[in-house]
Design a protein around this nucleic acid. Structure first.
Lengths: 187, 187
DNA sequence: GTCTATAAAGAGATAGAC
DNA sequence: GTCTATCTCTTTATAGAC
C-alpha cells in the first residue's frame, strides 16, 4: 500500500504513547513505523534526525499540551483559583488516564536522550513549578511557602504515577491528585 | 587477560548502577560486560537467562538491601520510632546519593522487564508501604491514616527522585526526605 | 570459569524508484 | 511523500578452546 499519510499531530500522538509506555530507550524506529503505519524511510524524510528528532517533537508537543491544559487555564482562566485548579486536576487525571499512563518527564529524562530534549523537559517542569507556585500565592500562601508547596504537589503527582506503575493500579495516583488543592491552599 | 573473576556481589552492584542510570532498556550485555570486566559469554555462564536473569538478581539484591537498610531497622531496631526513622532516612539519602541516583523501582518497572521482575518490585514496594505504615501506627496514627501517610511519604520520595533527575539537582529529593518524619508522625 | 569466535536478529541510517 | 532495498553497527545468544 502506497502513500498512507498521517498528520504530524496523529503521528506524534502515537509516538508519545510509545515513549511514555516503553521509555526513551525502549522505543525503536521499527516500533514507531508500526505504530504510525509509515516505513522507517518515511519517518526519516519527515524527521531527518531520526528517533532523537521524533522524541524532541514529542516533548515539544507535551510542552504545548501542558501550556494549554495547565498553565493557561491556571494563569488566564476564569473563576476562582479553587475552580481553576479543579479543572486543571481533571485534565491531568485525563492526561495520565487515571494513573494508568506514565509521565513523559520521568520516562524520557534518562541518559540516551539528547541534551536538548532534557533541557526542554527541564524548562517545562520549571514552568509547571512556577504555575503551581503562582496559584498558591494567589490563594494566600507566602511566596516561599508557595514554592515549597508547588514542588510538594508536583512531587506527589510524579511519585503517585511511579507508585501506580509499580503497583499496577492507578489508585495511588488518584490519591496523590486529591492532595493537591490542600497543598496549594485552595481546599 | 584470562580469568578476571569478580564476586557476584560486586558484579550485581555494578549492574545495579547501570540499571538505575540507564533504565532497563538502556542496559545491554556489552555495557554489563564492560562494567564488570567479564566477556559476554562469561555473563551467560553465570546468568544463563542473560540480561533478564541479571536484572532479576539485581532486583532481588535491592529487595535484600531494603530489608536491612529500611525494614529491619524500623521494625526490630532499638530506640524511639523517631530515632529509628531518622536512621532509615539517612540510609535512604545515602542509597540515593543525595538524589543524584534514580530509583530502581522507577527505572526497572517498564514493559520489557519480565513479569517476575515486576512482581518482585511490587512485593518490595508493598513491604515498604507496610513498614512505613507500621512506624506511623507506632507513633500514634490511626491505622487508616498510617497507610495513607506511608503512601504519601513514599510518593514524595519517589516524586522527589523524579524531580531531581529532571531538574539535574538532588535538592528536590532532599526536601522530600525532610517531609517524611512529619508525615509518619515522628516529627 | 573465562575466553575467542561467530551466528542470527534488531537497530539506525541512506540511496534511489515511483 | 512514501516506498523497497540495502548497508553498517549493535545486540543477543551459542559453540568450542583453554
Amino acid at each position: 500500500m502506497a502513500h498512507r499519510t498521517i498528520s504530524d499531530e496523529e503521528l506524534l500522538g502515537r509516538a508519545l504513547e510509545l515513549f511514555r509506555t516503553y521509555g526513551f530507550e525502549g522505543v525503536s524506529l521499527k516500533r514507531l513505523a508500526e505504530a504510525t503505519g509509515l516505513e522507517k524511510a518515511s519517518l526519516y524524510y519527515r524527521f531527518p534526525g531520526g528517533k532523537d528528532d521524533i522524541a524532541m517533537a514529542v516533548v515539544n508537543g507535551v510542552a504545548a499540551a501542558m501550556q494549554h491544559l495547565v498553565f493557561d487555564p491556571l494563569h488566564t482562566g476564569e473563576g476562582t483559583p479553587r475552580k481553576r485548579l479543579q479543572g486543571v486536576i481533571e485534565r491531568l487525571r485525563e492526561f495520565y488516564a487515571c494513573g494508568t499512563k506514565s509521565c513523559v518527564f520521568d520516562l524520557m529524562s534518562i541518559p540516551g536522550a539528547s541534551p536538548e530534549l532534557k533541557a526542554s523537559l527541564r524548562t517545562t517542569m520549571k514552568a509547571w513549578l512556577d504555575s503551581f507556585a503562582a496559584i498558591g500565592r494567589e490563594s494566600g500562601l507566602a511566596s516561599g511557602q508557595a514554592r515549597t508547596r508547588a514542588e510538594e504537589a508536583i512531587g506527589r503527582i510524579e511519585g503517585g504515577l511511579v507508585l501506580a506503575r509499580v503497583m499496577g493500579d492507578g489508585a495511588a495516583f488518584e490519591r496523590a491528585l486529591k492532595t493537591v488543592p490542600e497543598l496549594l491552599g485552595t481546599a
